[in-house]
Design a protein around this nucleic acid. Structure first.
Lengths: 225, 225
DNA sequence: TTGAAAAACGGAGTACCCCTCCGTATATCC
DNA sequence: GGATATACGGAGGGGTACTCCGTTTTTCAA
């Protein structure tokens, strides 16, 4: 469902496949230990290939990230499906968010990957962004439909909040902190019975949320500096 | 209140003072337009001083950031004081958070500065971290004392959530998005009358907040990669 | 006023890193 | 067993971070 375009019938070369795999493996390892902005030359070095080879397979840092963490992203997508079946709407949402935190905690570099997925607009990261947006969107819609959650927050908003909170990973107590924050956040999402309290800053009743929910897939030009 | 230490009685040299100021001014301008990771050599160039001079005055990028944005940080601190007098607890908190977003929106580079303040453990950033922590802590405590806000969230938590959310500045609609998210968050902070709902994840009643409120100033070694 | 010494200056130098380009090597397929 | 499409690798151009040290400037005491 992806390779048409007049099918030039040449098998991909064996060494190309092999090297691609080597680079992926090296990248996984290097990113895990060295963090998000490790040197790509280090990756090539570790993979035992030339820097040119690395760049041919993955033209940008994002592309490499994407490839390395696509498996993880897929898992998160599947988890969302599963939770949709197994848990009550709000609970499912909460658990999915929490699972994200665990992912980030486990795989160092995952945080940066998520950040790139959410921030970058590189052609390649669209897939992951879609996948995650849909995952959280599904959970969100269900909870909204059940009347348990306010309707003016988009999946993108939520995703970015999540990624933002995980941004501070590598702080001493970050994980607990983020879990706490997520709970607060989910509580805030719940439709409030009579929060009329003292109205606080209800000066922005729903200035957005004009049904349009932002434009998904806004595309636009490069972001490269 | 700061210069004791056996006072070796040598006035600081005039050119040193002048150059420090030049570098600061240049940095402000360069960071504003060029973003967080602009070249320090560009800063030196614009200041009309050698790169060595820049490094002597500000040994690290963080140090320079700190110095550039200290004024802003102070302003935020004062704003908190003011709001404490002028507004109701929860409202004050909300407004302070919103002001932060505006700051980031106005000064490009402020976001990165905040991130460094929150993340970095460099000696210099301690001041700012303290200042902001106390600012938000004051607002928070007041709201907690008034019984309007849950008590298991520390100022540090809040600060980091804020910075995290601003992390995605430079996205198309980020500002509105973050303001929305902040509202959700503040709503979540409010003491809920009878959220007994399905209990969801109330499994961390106040595991922290044991009065100690984490340890500020954790120091530890370099963070340089 | 003067001149020695402390303090600051500035930029060349080292060590990385990103990314491109292209001559060389190798797998495919007829 | 070639011909040729593909892939390889690394030199090279252009940057940046940060250090080191010979030179210049300022201070201050005599």
């Amino acid at each position: 469902m992806a390779d048409q375009s007049a099918a030039p019938p040449r098998k991909p070369r064996a060494d190309a496949i092999r090297n691609r795999e080597l680079v992926l493996k090296a990248a996984k390892s290097v990113f895990s230990t060295g963090g998000a902005d490790a040197s790509l030359e280090a990756v090539a070095r570790r993979a035992g290939v030339g820097i040119g080879t690395l760049y041919r397979h993955f033209p940008t840092r994002e592309a490499l990230f994407e490839a390395v963490y696509r498996r993880e992203v897929d898992q998160l997508g599947e988890l969302a499906e599963q939770l949709k079946k197994e848990a009550a709407p709000v609970d499912a949402l909460r658990r999915w968010l929490r699972s994200n935190v665990e992912f980030v905690a486990t795989k160092k570099g995952m945080s940066a990957a998520l950040a790139i997925v959410v921030q970058g607009s590189s052609e390649l990261s669209v897939y992951s962004f879609d996948r995650l947006t849909k995952a959280v969107g599904g959970l969100l819609d269900r909870a909204v439909a059940a009347g348990e959650i306010r309707s003016d927050i988009s999946p993108e908003d939520l995703l970015r909040a999540l990624v933002g909170m995980c941004y501070m990973h590598d702080q001493p107590g970050w994980q607990k902190s983020v879990l706490r924050l997520l709970d607060v956040f989910v509580d805030g999402l719940r439709v409030q019975a009579g929060t009329g309290g003292q109205a606080t800053a209800r000066s922005h009743p729903r200035d957005i949320a004009t049904g349009a929910r932002e434009s998904p897939r806004h595309k636009s030009g490069k972001v490269r500096k």
